[in-house]
Design a protein around this nucleic acid. Structure first.
Length: 373
DNA sequence: AACGCGTGGAT
DNA sequence: TATCCAAGCGT
């Protein structure tokens, strides 16, 4: 295996790392709240939140999360539902569950200190190879390469790497090249600047469309640039198919003696979309929703405006039906609970549902699909 | 090893 | 509007 790595290394451009590091220190991003620290807890939290999620989206979640859970011990001892509530709206909720489990493992099995090497970090829940490499490089200067979307785009162009990113074998091959490009001698915080530089270059210069090659510090080394084929990299053949579905949502509402509005929420199954989150009852047809509602109340159902909500692999048409009922009428669904409006923020729930419930409070009459009279 | 898993921004 | 995809991971 080492002979292959050496062979690949012989093909690589000289001076890439040095140019990138110098560029990052002048033109790279430096004001993000998870930079300028080597606290593995802070870096870990940011890296997990940033998985498949843009910086601008993460910012507020990160600051709020760190305020509530300032260290790994406080996170480890928190109730799972509180972690999910703070993650609510950020998506990919298995990240939050793994984050919580990881904190508990670090406390219980590592005395509250994250392992230092990428190899050991990658054994923890929710930490894959790329995240492990980022933590080890940022916190301890380990000479190891990340391999995220930015690196795949930057390096596939730099090397005119034609492997298909849809295939694991090609990603592995590019990962070996990425590792071979890591600076041989990384002094001080060189690995921090190098790692950050790879991502900054991909995020601000070597962008998906219309890259700013004139401003790129390594354009002279870039093989796609030389061939005029920058727009052909990275290669990715697999297209994500998106299935269309309609989900019928039962928004059951009641006003208790306290005068507070409550919503009927259930916990989602532990597998699948929105696993473990709180949600209103979901049905796959209007008929099945109607059959669930007591016959004496069906004429109180009101059809609201549908919402389209797209996931990576699904295009959902969410069709809400509003039902005002008395508390004692609620015998028609099991395993749920009335949740007061003031407590919704403390429940992890899907983003579109939060929007939907909020819209009812703020004058849902405007959203009523039935004609005004 | 391909697929499931959220949400929002950019084009 | 449709599509891509962003500091990926688990199975």
């Amino acid at each position: 295996m080492s002979s292959q790595l050496v062979g690949a290394g012989a093909d690589l451009p000289d001076g890439f790392a040095a140019e990138l590091i110098a560029w990052q220190r002048v033109h790279g991003r430096s004001g993000l709240p998870w930079q300028h620290t080597r606290d593995p807890y802070v870096v870990w939290l940011s890296e997990v939140m940033l998985q498949q999620t843009q910086v601008s989206t993460v910012l507020t979640y990160f600051l709020r999360f760190l305020l509530r859970f300032p260290d790994v011990q406080s996170l480890a001892s928190a109730p799972s539902d509180e972690v999910m509530a703070l993650w609510s709206g950020l998506g990919y909720y298995s990240r939050a569950r793994n984050l919580h489990r990881c904190a508990q493992v670090v406390v219980a099995e590592h005395g509250g200190a994250f392992p230092r090497s990428a190899r050991e970090l990658a054994l923890l829940p929710g930490i894959g190879e790329s995240t492990a490499a980022a933590i080890a490089a940022f916190c301890h200067g380990e000479r190891i390469s990340i391999l995220d979307g930015n690196v795949r785009r930057v390096l596939s162009r730099l090397l005119a790497f034609s492997g298909d990113m849809s295939q694991a074998s090609a990603q592995k091959a590019l990962g070996s090249l990425a590792q071979a490009l890591v600076p041989k001698t990384a002094a001080g915080d060189d690995m921090t600047a190098y790692t950050q530089g790879l991502m900054d270059l991909g995020a601000t210069i070597c962008t998906r469309s219309r890259p700013l090659c004139e401003r790129c510090p390594v354009s002279a080394l870039c093989r796609a640039r030389a061939a005029g084929t920058v727009d052909q990299f990275p290669v990715k053949t697999r297209k994500t198919q998106r299935r269309h579905e309609t989900w019928w949502l039962l928004l059951a509402r009641t006003v208790l003696a306290s005068g507070q509005t409550h919503w009927w929420l259930q916990r989602r199954p532990s597998q699948g979309i929105w696993a473990g989150l709180f949600c209103v009852p979901v049905f796959d047809s209007d008929l099945s929703l109607m059959e669930t509602v007591d016959a004496t109340q069906r004429d109180k159902l009101r059809l609201l405006e549908p919402i389209s909500h797209s996931l990576t692999h699904r295009e959902l048409r969410l069709q809400p039906m509003l039902l005002d009922c008395a508390e004692q009428d609620a015998g028609w669904v099991s395993n749920g609970q009335w949740v007061p409006e003031y407590a919704l923020h403390a429940h992890g729930m899907p983003a579109p549902l939060r929007t939907l419930l909020l819209a009812q409070r703020l004058g849902g009459g405007l959203q009523d699909a039935e004609p005004a009279r």
